[in-house]
């Protein structure tokens, strides 16, 4: 358990959070290397299956992050994502996954600092929760 390094998969929208992550890079803000980003055009595009797949493959935490309410490049995709994430949080326990491992945030294009802090905090949560239940249950 000592040197356990959790994998965090982040589904981020192209227009806001991806750009925020770029900004975190430009500002050289350091965060855990186990954070892996997957770019989608808008969080509204997020299929619930992506999140489940990431957990079943062994992710210790999943972040879904898009534009702030009202800022979505496609008007309201982020609200649709919010509904999907809410449903997912109800479903995850059925897979033996603690809902805390899934997080939804709004991080605007200029919030590089907030991006770095968010993923760092999520990685800490995952570290505290330990290796994914899905993996421990040897579903994999």
């Amino acid at each position: 358990m000592q040197d356990f390094e959790p994998t965090v998969i982040a589904f981020v929208c192209n227009w806001c959070t991806y750009t925020a992550a770029d900004l975190a890079g430009t500002a050289r803000l350091v965060y855990a290397p186990s954070v892996r980003l997957i770019r989608i055009m808008c969080t509204g595009m997020l299929d619930a299956k992506y999140v489940i797949k990431a957990f079943l493959e062994g992710a210790e935490a999943v972040l879904v992050s898009g534009c702030r309410p009202g800022d979505c490049h496609y008007l309201n995709g982020n609200y649709k994502a919010r509904r999907r994430v809410k449903l997912l949080k109800e479903i995850l326990p059925h897979f033996g996954i603690v809902p805390e491992r899934l997080k939804l945030t709004w991080i605007g294009a200029s919030d590089g600092i907030e991006f770095a802090e968010t993923v760092t905090r999520l990685a800490e949560t995952a570290r505290r929760l330990g290796p994914s239940e899905a993996r421990r249950a040897m579903i994999l």
Partner: peptide, 30 residues
Amino acid sequence: CGSCSGFCPSGAARSRHFDNRQIFSEIDGL
């Protein structure tokens, strides 16, 4: 924006270049 493809219950709606299969492959690769 993919709002349709993200929810379509039968998987008929797809986003070109951000297809389910493409995203799944990316997760697999990681």
